[in-house]
Design a protein around this nucleic acid. Structure first.
Ligand code: TTP
Ligand code: MG
Length: 755
DNA sequence: GGGTCCGTGACGA
DNA sequence: TTCCATCGTCACGGACCC
């Protein structure tokens, strides 16, 4: 890929209000909304009621809920082309039944709970708005909308093309016998897409294969073959070039074309262009596609989905047509508004359609950041990117693999080495060199973590990558993983560093795509909502440490002793001498036994920077550290000490020196944790206890902060800080404060520029 | 106050 | 029996540095 045409396009998924949150209440509400708007307060009450309902359900595990599957939110309930006649209730039930109880499911529940908490916070925020506030924000919203209006550009004609069931269609071309039979591309663990026959059963992209099997026993699975998809993708792009040499490729099967010029030059309508283009694509490839035409990319994308299988839809470049079109459009159809954003907008503001985005403009301006609110308002106004996009190149390259969860270090290092090989090979192909390496891990419980290091020099060889990747992994080690991934970014092209790259890539990409020119755009796209903030989390960390306790002795010695890990240090790291060959050694040796040689000392303290690796473990290994303090030279001693304290304290009891105000808020720091978060609360209280002991102890120095940071973050939803770059970033904004009030505006990030 | 780096989450194909 | 992928982008907040 370095496709010059490539871009971040505008997304417009599909939707449907089906994915209801919960039961009857939701249905009733929908019916209402369909009719009209509904008022804020009532709406909120209603939502609250539902929330309570849900908590009850969760708490008592479906006994009281006759339809537990309805509260399991998946992405499969979204309306998608070819899924009209599907019995969604049944699909949802099957998905739920197949998922229930799994690690994956549990993780989803944690995420859901977190989102619900966020929603609750927003409700509170909303409720606190005074009439004066609302009046003020209404003015703000009105002003912004009118400013957006001024910038409306109806002079361009954009066409979005999207191949139908792309991978599946390509596979059918290679094996015609598949025609007419339900088929999916992918495997038992995950399906990339399914043909329309399979969709009738509810089988669709991003659905695990084993669930698809349940829905459609006769489903045929075909493995993915990117070579084929790339080949056909190139064929379609050649056609696109004839209509817009600067078209933007959004993915292998999607592209945006500015057909303003073609229409004018040839004196024909966009409808005719779309028809011609589609039949030409069919002639050249034997594949069908759908097209959408509108005044901007955002709407064009929505339009291409309307008559999806092998059809097209043209939205006139007239303001009223646009306004009308958008008014009844479900927000989920807009690219950038996904499951979570839809959930939030609906539950907090009662927003289901784009029109309502404008109606609730004052609330949106009051609660979201400027850019996010701007995005929502522009969507409500039917605006989107129209400018000619600039060329963009890839910013990162990565490789990741899932395997059956294991905590066997030798195995993990082996997996890592495999990933390294794949990644460096890919980089080689494109002549890429990067200086930031990010390790991605997914624990057995589906928690995702990333650990990055930025080097001073650009790397690309498998040796260099493995060297640094191993260090990153080593620091995380005692952990059971189901996935390891590596990403390299911060390429050195543009300049200086290594001349070869940039050029090469560019050329390559140009060649590949068949044409050259500018392209892309930064369009709209996303709103990455962000719900970050703090949160509660599962913490498997905690449990981990505890559980591991016993095991630890053995385990531990291993990692450090074994030198499986190349100790290298990145520039800063002390020396590495030994390392170089590490990788080689690595594979074989890694076997747990290997050990020997070891070198704990090698890694010793690093001067400064990256101690990365180390710090993190602290929490997890506390017990370990306690017992083996002597050994770990690796880690920063201070941390070890801290841990000691920490460990001790937590083990002690948790005397109640604080309480949960309203059975919800921590009396000490204000963090809000619903009573249902038993473990999180335990963690939280342990944290305060440790904090207190430490204070008594003596100094709250930086170390203390460290403790606070990680301990705190942990309990909450994902530990972000935890690792906070291990460097000594100490300061941390105590999470205490964070917990106190969530900056809702940060909830969403904004997006794009399509405004 | 600006630039960087890191970690996380949302979103999409 | 099996039991939820892979690759990529963007946006932030926090930490750190100057
Ligand atoms: C949605 C999705 C798509 N893909 C791949 C497979 C798809 O064929 C390809 C294009 O995605 P889509 O255009 O979303 O889907 P599709 O082309 O298969 O079906 P249709 O457009 O008719 O609704 O991207 C994934 O690998 N994972 C995913 O989660
Ligand atoms: Mg498609």
């Amino acid at each position: 890929m370095g496709d010059p045409h490539h871009c971040t396009e505008e997304r417009a998924p599909s939707l449907d209000r089906v994915e209801e949150l919960c039961c009857a209440l939701e249905l009733a509400r929908d019916l209402h909304l369909t009719g009209d708007g509904e008022e804020g307060i009532h709406e909120r009450e209603r939502v609250r009621e539902r929330e309570r309902e849900m908590e009850k359900i969760e708490g008592s595990s479906s006994i009281e809920n006759p339809r537990p599957w309805q509260s399991y939110h998946t992405v499969y309930t979204n309306a998608k082309a070819g899924m009209d006649g599907v019995d969604k209730e049944k699909v949802q039930r099957v998905v739920y039944e197949m998922s229930k109880g799994s690690k994956y499911f549990e993780n989803e529940e944690r995420k859901e709970a977190f989102i619900r908490q966020k929603i609750e916070h927003m409700h509170v925020r909303c409720a606190k708005l005074t009439a004066a506030d609302l009046s003020h924000y209404q003015k703000v919203a009105d002003k912004r909308v009118s400013e957006l209006e001024v910038r409306r550009d109806l002079s361009r004609i954009w066409l979005h093309v999207d191949m139908d069931a792309f991978y599946a269609a390509v596979e059918t071309l290679s094996d015609p016998s598949l025609k007419g039979k339900p088929m999916a591309v992918g495997g038992m663990s995950m399906i990339s897409t399914a043909n329309y026959e399979a969709r009738k059963f509810g089988v669709r992209a991003a659905m695990p294969g084993f669930i698809a099997c349940k829905l459609c026993p006769e489903l045929i699975f075909v493995p993915t073959d990117f070579k084929k998809y790339n080949y056909y993708s190139d064929l379609t792009r050649k056609v696109f070039c004839d209509y817009d040499p600067n078209f933007m490729a959004a993915s292998l099967d999607e592209a945006y074309l500015d057909i303003t010029e073609v229409c004018r030059e040839r004196g024909i309508t966009s409808t005719e262009i779309a028809e011609e283009l589609r039949s030409r694509v069919y002639e050249e490839t034997g594949l069908t596609c759908s097209a959408g035409v509108a005044a901007n990319r955002l709407l064009a994308k929505v339009c291409s989905d309307i008559n999806k299988p092998n059809g097209q839809f043209v939205l006139p470049n007239e303001r009223m047509a646009v306004i009308t079109f958008v008014s009844s459009l479900p927000i989920r159809k807009i690219g950038g508004i996904g499951k979570v954003t839809e959930h939030i907008l609906r539950d907090v503001f009662g927003i289901n359609t784009c029109e309502e985005l404008l109606q609730k403009g004052s609330f949106l301006c009051a609660l979201f950041s400027h850019s996010t609110a701007e995005f929502f308002l522009s969507v409500g106004s039917g605006l989107g990117g129209t400018e000619t996009p600039q060329v963009r190149f890839r910013k990162s390259i990565s490789s990741e693999r899932t395997f059956s969860a294991t905590e066997n270090k030798a195995l993990l290092y082996q997996k890592l080495a495999e990933i390294v090989e794949m990644l460096s090979a890919d980089m080689q192909k494109e002549g890429l060199h990067g200086r930031t390496l990010t390790l991605k891990l997914k624990t057995a419980s589906f928690e995702v973590r990333t650990r990055a290091v930025t080097l001073q020099k650009y790397i690309c060889s498998s040796e260099d990558i493995l060297k640094h990747a191993s260090l990153l992994l080593k620091a995380e080690l005692p952990v059971s993983l189901r996935l390891i991934g590596l990403r390299v970014s911060q390429f050195n092209e543009d300049k200086a560093g290594a001349p070869s790259d940039p050029t090469q890539r560019t050329l390559t990409s140009f060649i590949m795509s068949g044409d050259a020119s500018r392209k892309n755009a930064a369009d709209q796209s996303s709103l990455g909502s962000d719900i970050s903030d703090h949160h509660f989390m599962d913490d498997q960390e905690t449990s981990c440490s505890l559980g591991i306790h016993e095991t630890i002795p053995d385990e531990v010695s291993d990692p450090f002793e074994n030198n499986c890990v190349p100790n290298v240090d990145d520039q800063n790291r002390t020396f590495s001498d030994n390392v170089g060959e590490v990788e080689k050694i690595h594979q074989p040796s890694s076997s747990e036994t290997a050990g020997k040689g070891n070198k704990l000392d090698m890694v010793r303290h690093t001067p400064k920077s990256h101690q990365n690796e180390l710090s993190e473990l602290v929490e997890t290994d506390s017990s370990f550290l306690l017992q083996h303090e002597g050994n770990n030279h690796d880690r920063v001693e201070e941390e070890a000490n801290i841990l000691n304290n920490e460990a001790v304290s937590s083990s002690n009891q948790t005397d109640q020196f604080f309480c949960w105000v309203d059975n919800y808020k921590c009396s000490l720091c204000g963090t809000e944790l619903p009573p249902t978060f038993v473990e999180e609360r335990q963690e939280h209280s342990d944290f305060h206890l440790a904090e207190r002991l430490q204070e008594e102890d003596s100094g709250s120095n930086s170390r203390f902060h460290t403790l606070r940071q990680r301990k705190f973050a942990r309990p909450v939803y994902k530990d972000r800080t935890a690792s906070a770059s291990h460097k000594k970033r100490k300061k941390l904004k105590s999470s205490g404060k964070e917990g106190t009030h969530i900056p809702i505006d940060t909830f969403f990030v904004k997006s794009n520029q399509n405004l």
